[in-house]
């Protein structure tokens, strides 16, 4: 039987929904699912993981070095416990992408990035070339399978079951001192989280100026939507980097995605392929975004966005 370890992502005492998505992938692989939660000692997050559907045990590893998720400090702790498992999974977020390859190297194992679909316990589909091709890959020896899970492909499992027991282990191995956390500069807005939101509206270079992002935000607030952006809008300094949608930004799968003033470069489209309905507002009828949009409106966003805010 497969024994699958899912590494939890969490911050400020809250389990990230990316963890429940990785658990969904683990359930598709099939086997006994354990969630590893690395903390400094408070059991709150472990308790959240213990309630996730399909999880049979939670291993909480406590160490003072876990105040922040630093790959160089967490990989050695996970190395200690990985041995008994057939699979180790983590979300394909910046957290998982940073950590998993380091762990894989310590285990001298190859790794699968970004599982979209499970064919069997060792065979997976994953995107390459910014999602313009899908490869079916197989870990074809009998060693440990290490992988990250594409959030947009896996709806999170629910948190309903009676919590399973949490086993607390203090990890007393010496952790390196060569990597130190200094600061996190993140916008803690009231809007829904881009990666979890059911509706997202993004703005691109077509907005023309930082202050025009208010037009996008007004529609977002009417819809209860999260705000996203193209790389051009982020590079122009109009919005922070964590709003970028695309190959090198966030890959999202909302029910509704509205792109305003975004041309639809392949790198941007790579981030929205799994969206339910794509709406494009662009004044250029030949913009490539219209080739993938379910509903297109060729018009000036400076007129459309205020009108939408008015009517919605």
């Amino acid at each position: 039987m497969n024994k699958i370890l899912v590494i939890a992502e969490h911050a400020n005492g809250v389990l990230n929904s990316s963890t429940a998505r990785a658990v969904a992938c683990a359930a598709a692989i099939g086997g006994e699912i354990t969630v590893a939660v690395l903390t400094t000692g408070s059991c709150d997050v472990a308790a959240q993981a213990a309630g996730l559907e399909g999880v049979v045990s939670v291993a909480e590893l406590t160490n003072p070095g876990n105040a922040q998720a630093l790959a160089a400090l967490q990989a050695p702790q996970l190395l200690e416990i990985s041995a008994g498992y057939t699979h180790v999974l983590a979300p394909n977020s910046t957290f998982g992408k940073d950590l998993m390859p380091r762990l894989a190297a310590l285990l001298d194992r190859p790794m699968v990035t970004d599982i979209m679909a499970v064919q069997d316990a060792r065979t997976f589909d994953r995107p390459v070339y910014a999602g313009n091709a899908i490869t079916t890959v197989q870990v074809d020896d009998d060693g440990l399978v290490l992988a990250t899970v594409r959030g947009a492909s896996w709806p999170p499992v629910v948190q309903t079951q009676a919590p399973v027991t949490v086993e607390c282990q203090t990890s007393d191995i010496d952790l390196p001192a060569h990597t130190r956390f200094v600061a996190l500069d993140g916008e803690q807005g009231d809007r829904p989280d881009l990666q979890a939101a059911e509706k997202v509206i993004s703005g691109g270079r077509g907005l023309g100026a930082a202050e025009h992002f208010a037009l996008v935000e007004a529609v977002a607030d009417k819809l209860g939507a999260a705000v996203g952006a193209s790389r051009a809008a982020v590079d122009s300094g109009w919005v922070p980097n964590d709003l970028q949608v695309g190959q090198t930004g966030k890959i999202i799968a909302p029910d509704l995605y509205i792109a305003a003033g975004i041309s639809g470069a392949i790198q941007h489209l790579a981030g929205i392929k799994d969206a339910g309905t794509i709406v494009a507002i662009n004044k250029d009828p030949d913009a490539p975004i219209f080739e993938v949009a379910d509903i297109g409106l060729v018009a000036d966003l400076h007129e459309v966005l205020p009108a939408l805010t008015e009517m919605l």
Partner: peptide
């Protein structure tokens, strides 16, 4: 300074 999902993280490394 690193581009992470939550924003910009700064690390000091030897």
């Amino acid at each position: 300074t690193r581009e992470v999902d939550a924003g910009l993280e700064t690390l000091s490394v030897d």
